[in-house]
Design a protein around this nucleic acid. Structure first.
Lengths: 189, 189
DNA sequence: CAAAAAACTTGAACTAGTTCAAGAAAACGT
DNA sequence: ACGTTTTCTTGAACTAGTTCAAGTTTTTTG
């Protein structure tokens, strides 16, 4: 069975007919590593469900450095919800970190789908509630832990993921410099 | 008309019968300033829609200082979504910053309501999408702006709100010390 | 309105994390 | 397998923001 349908069934009940309708609104796509799916200044039109691989959402700061704000892996959704919602130009970049496979759905297709299969409102509500809850916790950690604590905490919660991505990307996600990451890892802090 | 119903009507269409059903699941409450609605270690059971006043969600850090993670004012929802979802003990405190009036709905009541009026799934999806979008932007600002920039930015976007709350609470929300806030305001930075 | 409590200010000493620059090690494409 | 690119490391100098302690101002309350 399709991996997205499996994921949806973890949250709501759908039958085969509904599954087929749902899938008809999505496009399955594969992208090589480092493919840009969204760039600053564009209008975000698409939401991605990750089947395989890893994507990230990042910005380029004043000094020209990339700062990763979010990672997405298997069975996570990723998009710039602000630009998607307002249809204003985005401040973000979305890029594949590994060769990746996604199910993509465009904003207008999603609107149609929600009209056809209103149950999906519930699925997305639950997804967003989970994401927002995670985001509240993320802010908690950013506010209370030191750089070193954030690193050790992340490492203990997501050890396999740490192996998958360049350290400098993780450093920027945890909001410290790549050099400082090196020093933490070497125990020189 | 009830302020919550008005707010819901900004997102979905509901008739008078539905409005009445919806309201029957809520309890309208008034709390004086500094009332604790949630404390660390408790299980979060309730979601609040703010009619009047101001609430905040905060933590107490290792040094025993309060750090505000979120403010809520008129027409915003506030709760600890993680504890609400998992029914595990919360890490957070929720407190009224001003004398406040809220519409409170308990987790089980919300589940019933969503069964009775499935349209409300859409309302909450849209609310959560807005909240999550705001949270993505919040993290962007935290990652790219200096303390001083965060203060000036917040001040330019929410000037009236800055007048309503103690500066030390705003300082902790913007993730710097009350003393540093003083220095920014005095232009001594 | 007086007293107490809450909020704000100031300066000096400090520190967690940054920046820069250069070199070393891995990973990758052909 | 070799050269190129990407990623990681190291140390020295620096800085944005913290901490502490004490004093001042503002707000609240009986």
């Amino acid at each position: 069975m399709n991996q997205l349908i499996e994921h949806i069934k973890r949250f709501i009940e759908i039958d085969d007919a509904e599954s087929a309708i749902i899938l008809s609104y999505f496009e399955e796509k594969s992208y090589p590593k480092k493919t840009q799916l969204l760039e600053e200044g564009q209008i975000c039109t698409t939401q991605y469900f990750i089947l395989k691989g890893c994507l990230r959402l990042y910005i380029i700061n004043d000094k020209g450095n990339e700062q990763t704000l979010q990672f997405g892996i298997e069975n996570w959704w990723i998009t710039d919800y602000m630009s998607l919602q307002t249809q204003h130009p985005t401040h973000f970049y979305i890029q594949t970190v590994e060769n990746s496979q996604v199910m993509a759905i465009r904003k207008d297709a999603l609107d149609d789908l929600l009209g056809k299969v209103p149950k999906m409102e519930r699925y997305f509500r639950l997804i967003l509630q989970k994401s927002y809850a995670a985001s509240q916790m993320r802010i908690k950690f950013l506010y209370t832990q030191s750089a070193e604590e954030r690193y050790h905490h992340f490492n203990s919660v997501q050890p396999e993921f740490v192996q998958r991505i360049p350290q400098y990307m993780l450093a920027s996600y945890l909001d410290f410099s790549a050099e400082f990451m090196s020093k933490i890892r070497a125990g020189k802090v």
